[in-house]
Amino acid sequence: MLSGLTLDQMRTFVTVVESGSFRSGAARLSRVQSAVSHSIANLELELGVALFDRSGHRPILTSEGQALLANVRDILLRVDAMRARALSIGDGVELELSLTVDTLFPIATIGAALAEMRIEYPTVSIRLAVEPLGGPIASLMEKRSALAIVVGEDFRDPRIALEAITSIEQVAVVSPGHPLALRPHGDIVGLPDLADHLQIVLSDPTSLSEGRSFGVLSPQTCRVGSQDTKHAMILAGLGWGRLPTWQVERDISDGRLRRLLANALGRNGQLASEAYVAHRLDKPLGPAAQAFRRALLRGLSR
């Protein structure tokens, strides 16, 4: 039975190892050497092994002591993490930051802001989802997330507070081998031309868009569940669609995608939508969520 083990004994053991001797360990702990020796002896008695070889001038870790040192350090690390979390709870810090991000928003920007938040609040866990269309708003209404990043004006609710943070630009694109890309350079693509070809569009995972259609101009559609799938299908030449500039600018510059000059899709096939940080009015942002928001705004201003 190890019921007599104490955290103090384990901390004393680690301190002696790190300081190199019982005397130095006692000085670091502001104790007399006999108290340190007694604590180590009790720890050895509880464990049933000798942690130090005391036959020489300085105590040397035995093989058993070397093996158990890693376990002791791991225990102390977990205890310190638990203590830090308990202090955070007492200060009102969230145990977890739950966040749903619109698929049109650059996820790398979110990652950088979350990493910055974790420096300030290292004990806060993160639950991150990426969803299209009504997903971010629905996550707030269903209390699946405390915070959301919303793009566009299509989904509003009076119970949701919105703060505009940046704009997201989308461009109409198609693969170089697609018939729409083979038109004369600078030729404006009309609505009838777009309607003659398959459009790749996102499906809404929620019921918020039931009976509504957003940006669908062709009767021929391929509905997909994620932005990455939409991107892949357009690259494959299956059809045309709008994608955020941050996702396709390299494809365009390298010739893997061509922009469509279609005024029906925005001036020169380009459309900008506002992006917002959103949360429920009845659920004010906690300290970690506020830290994430500040980090996100700093990142967007650079």
Rank of each mutant, 00 (worst) to 15 (best):
V14G: 10
V93E: 06
R212T: 03
S273D: 04
S63G: 12
I40S: 13
L217W: 03
G255K: 04
Q247V: 05
R83Y: 05
V16F: 06
A112R: 14
L162N: 11
S203H: 09
G90C: 11
P205I: 01
H231A: 11
A289K: 10
L68S: 09
P205L: 02
V72D: 04
D228K: 15
T15H: 08
I252A: 08
H231G: 08
V36G: 13
G111P: 00
R11V: 02
V248E: 02
L97R: 13
I149R: 07
S218T: 01
A295V: 02
V49D: 02
P158W: 00
R23G: 06
Q9P: 11
E18S: 15
V277F: 05
Q227E: 12
P192H: 07
A129V: 00
V201I: 10
F13R: 08
G241D: 01
T100I: 01
V79K: 12
L61G: 13
L271W: 09
L29W: 02
A181S: 14
E163P: 13
Q220E: 06
F22N: 10
Q199W: 07
P244E: 00
R156Q: 09
R31C: 08
G92P: 10
A262S: 14
Q220T: 07
S207W: 01
S34D: 04
R293Q: 08
I119D: 03
L2K: 11
V171S: 12
L208D: 03
R54T: 10
A84I: 00
E44H: 11
T245C: 09
R144G: 14
A264P: 12
R83E: 10
L202C: 12
G92E: 00
S37H: 12
R156E: 01
E96Y: 08
F52N: 09
P179Q: 03
P179I: 02
L76D: 01
G4V: 01
I168L: 11
L281T: 11
S30V: 02
G25P: 10
A113M: 04
D91W: 11
T12W: 02
V72H: 10
E96W: 06
L77N: 14
D196I: 00
G190F: 03
G239L: 03
R11D: 05
A138E: 03
S145R: 05
A146C: 05
V32A: 14
S253C: 08
S167R: 14
E153W: 09
R28G: 06
G48V: 00
L69I: 01
A129D: 10
Q247L: 15
E169G: 15
L235Q: 07
V189C: 12
A195L: 05
L297Q: 14
V72A: 14
L257Y: 06
V17Y: 05
S139K: 04
L99Y: 06
R54M: 06
L281N: 13
R28D: 02
H178D: 01
E46V: 15
E116G: 15
L182E: 03
L95A: 14
R54F: 04
Q270L: 08
L194E: 03
D53E: 06
